[in-house]
Design a protein around this nucleic acid. Structure first.
Length: 657
RNA sequence: GCUGAUGUAGCUCAGUCGGUAGAGCACUUCCUUGGUAAGGAAGAGGUCAUCGGUUCAAGUCCGAUCAUCAGCUCCA
């Protein structure tokens, strides 16, 4: 090869920091990583070339922007876990020959593979599979990419791999694709677009978490498969850290803390999915409700109360009944004295009641917007497998409001609702909130009410409001409710599962169904638009997530017990009681611990009980007429006079910090 | 609803091969009167989720039901 040709064959690689380096044509990501540093080359899992992920050993043939991908990035973890799922499949194939493989992707927190096997997987099997996976890692097998035509791939999976699921994918999902890729490692091979790890040896630590079931292709009419979930790491240290995080999540679990802190209970004698608020939990809920009521009063909301049941005709009219009849409690059937039958539904939502309040009198455009609000308890017969403590219940209370406005006012009103939601989330310290614009799925039109024009308008309005509020959102196609698009505020629980809390929903459909109207400036009847909105969403779910978010360490304004007076010895009990009485008189939720125990013990139990303020009094405090304050998780704060203490606490409570 | 697992004292859990129930914490009483995360002693506490079956005998084996957990499906 001549010099000239070599120069021509050089390629310019632009690295993420903007530096440009020259490499021979056909250099791989590994070569480039090695030229930067040995450590980086070791950590390198794959590359992106002009933003597109590729294998570490794929030759780069032209000038490109290139980034070395390591486990530290979301993409790196995704690739690592995806390869780990292949390695798990190989391990299962070796241990349980004849197993067939469905889908095996990486997830946000690891990976899974769906398996059809004669063998029923049990907990003990997971340890065996883990060992086999680590063994495959030690074999240092290359993950080799092979491209072949789709027809060849079908033949390959039919005859060589004998895997009907992969054949089905090739024949359906990929039917329009000419060339597909297959990744080989040792004797195992899988249909996969990749990219993958360069070698199985990157896998140094693995934890298989649980076995569950799934439907092939997520279709409940098709066969059940066994799904094994796991997570893997390039080092033992990272696995240990992950296990520590799992344990922390377990400690924060709202069901565990709810029992320990006596916030709520669930009892089969009352019914599954029907949470009961214990006195301490009821305080938290009541404080949150008061907080929102105050804020809504400032924002022009009008409180109403409506019954817990409603005539079934109401829900047929709203359109909810046909859409959701299978997730409602069965109707209550009632015969009056004349034998006439009526059916009532435990209300699954509040909107129809509010719509009837709206239409109970003639409304002028001058009255709008009208914002009706209620903490409305609703009942939905959620599938038994869905129930989960407070975050998924069958009876729950929505902080539900319906805003009736003119089309002109709509975007402003959506913005107001977004602002209120953000205010609520901000006050409660939720910083990692994702916002989803939940749009309809045009391919599934029968799921929705209303006309195409109405949907187009509603989605445009939602977008406009979200843009005006400067929200960083993502679009969820098919996530809309049947009557309109939504803006959903989503947070994660301790285990990383996502839950929708606040919501703002636009509705052009209900006003039609309920023939809602107002008299415009032209003296004619016009149709208002409805916004459904709930900043908390459900009080139960919100508090469930709040418990996990705070790990039970509630801010002072929400703490069920705000202060506990801890006398050091019996001789200061009388003094301690005067302090306790003064706190109670000041409206502070205070207790007193006059048990015959040492102060160390009383403090320990108050700390475990997550009581924000410990008021310690002994001989010294009695003589000086002061108290000693200890804050939960902070320690000794020094001495205060009683009025001084009360001022501090009342300020902190009223500021809700 | 589906697949799998689990259910023993208020809580966390042990209970071997089927032989009649155990610990720690919490609780009650007594002793101890103390200075910023566990003082000591004693006591009480159980229809082993429920119902049925096998067996001389069931917490233990089998079946059904209920509930819980993980995931799937669903979510106004």
């Amino acid at each position: 090869m001549s010099d000239i040709q070599e120069k021509k064959a050089a390629i310019a690689i632009t690295l993420p920091d903007g530096t440009v380096r020259t490499f021979p044509c056909g250099s791989t990501g590994f070569d480039i990583a090695l030229s930067i540093g040995r450590r980086l080359a070791e950590d390198a899992l794959a590359v992106t070339v002009n933003g597109k992920a590729a294998d570490l050993y794929a030759p780069v043939a032209s000038d490109a922007q290139l980034e070395i991908i390591t486990f530290d990035t979301p993409l790196g973890r995704d690739i690592f876990w995806h390869s780990a799922s292949h390695i798990m499949a190989q391990a299962i194939e070796e241990l349980y020959p004849g197993s067939k493989f469905g889908a095996g992707p990486a997830t946000e927190q690891g990976f899974y593979y769906d398996i059809a096997s004669e063998h029923r997987f049990r907990e003990e099997d997971l340890r065996l599979i883990e060992q086999k996976m680590l063994e495959i890692g030690k074999r240092n097998s290359t993950l080799r990419r092979e491209e072949m035509s789709r027809t060849d791939a079908i033949a390959y999976f039919k005859n060589v791999r004998n895997d009907p699921y992969k054949v089905e994918i090739l024949e359906t999902t990929l039917k329009d694709v000419d060339t597909v890729s297959i990744y080989h490692q040792g004797d195992f091979a899988d249909l996969c677009t990749g990219p993958h790890l360069p070698s199985t040896s990157k896998l140094k630590a693995v934890l298989l978490l649980n076995i569950s079931s799934s439907y092939w292709r997520g279709d409940s009419s098709r066969e059940n498969m066994q799904r094994i979930y796991g997570i893997a790491f390039p080092s033992d240290k990272l696995l240990k850290e992950h296990i520590a995080r799992l344990e922390e999540a377990k400690r924060r679990d709202h069901r565990k803390l709810g029992t320990e802190l006596e916030l709520f209970m669930l009892s089969p004698e009352i019914g599954s999915g029907l949470p009961v608020w214990l006195p301490k939990g009821a305080i938290i809920r009541s404080e949150l409700e008061t907080f929102l009521k105050e804020e809504q009063r400032k924002r022009g909301y009008l409180p109403v109360y409506t019954p817990h049941i409603g005539n079934i005709e109401l829900y047929k009219r709203s359109g909810h009944y046909p859409y959701y009849s299978d997730s409602q409690f069965p109707p209550l059937t009632y015969h009056d004295e004349d034998g006439k039958q009526e059916q009532y539904l435990l209300k699954p939502m509040n909107c129809p009641h509010h719509h009837l309040i709206y239409s109970s009198k003639l409304r002028s455009y001058r009255d709008l917007p009208i914002r009706l609000t209620e903490f409305g308890t609703v009942y939905r017969h959620e599938q038994s497998g869905e129930l989960n403590g407070l975050v998924r219940a069958r009876g729950f209370t929505q902080d539900d409001s319906h805003i009736y406005c003119t089309p002109d006012q709509l975007v402003d009103e959506i913005c107001n609702a977004i602002d209120l939601t953000q205010f609520v989330f901000g006050t409660l310290g939720f910083s990692e909130v994702q916002t989803r614009l939940s749009m309809h799925d045009p391919a599934n039109q029968q799921k929705y009410g209303g006309t195409a024009e109405i949907w187009e308008q509603a989605e445009k309005d939602v977008r406009e409001a979200a843009d005006r509020m400067g929200i960083d959102y993502f679009i969820g196609i098919g996530e809309a409710s049947f009557y309109g698009p939504k803006i959903d505020f989503i947070v994660r629980d301790a285990l990383g599962r996502k839950w929708q809390l606040g919501t703002v929903q636009v509705d052009y459909v209900m006003p039609e169904r309920f023939d809602l109207s107002y008299i415009g400036s032209d003296g004619q009847k016009h149709r208002p638009v409805v916004i459904h909105r709930a900043p908390f969403g459900s009080m139960e779910r919100f508090i469930g997530v709040l418990i996990e978010h705070t790990a039970g360490n509630f801010p002072l304004w929400l703490a069920p017990v705000q202060a506990v007076v801890l006398p050091i010895a019996e001789e200061v009990h009388d003094y301690a009681k005067t302090i306790h009485a003064a706190l109670i008189a000041a409206g502070i939720r205070a207790e007193i611990d006059t048990r015959n125990e040492k102060i160390g013990r009383k403090i320990r139990e108050a700390e475990i009980g997550k009581i924000p303020c410990m008021i310690i009094v002994g001989q010294k405090e009695r003589d000086s007429g002061e108290i000693s304050l200890r804050r939960h998780r902070s320690g000794d704060m020094g001495s205060f006079t009683v009025p001084g203490l009360i001022d501090i606490l009342k300020k902190e409570i009223s500021e809700r910090t």
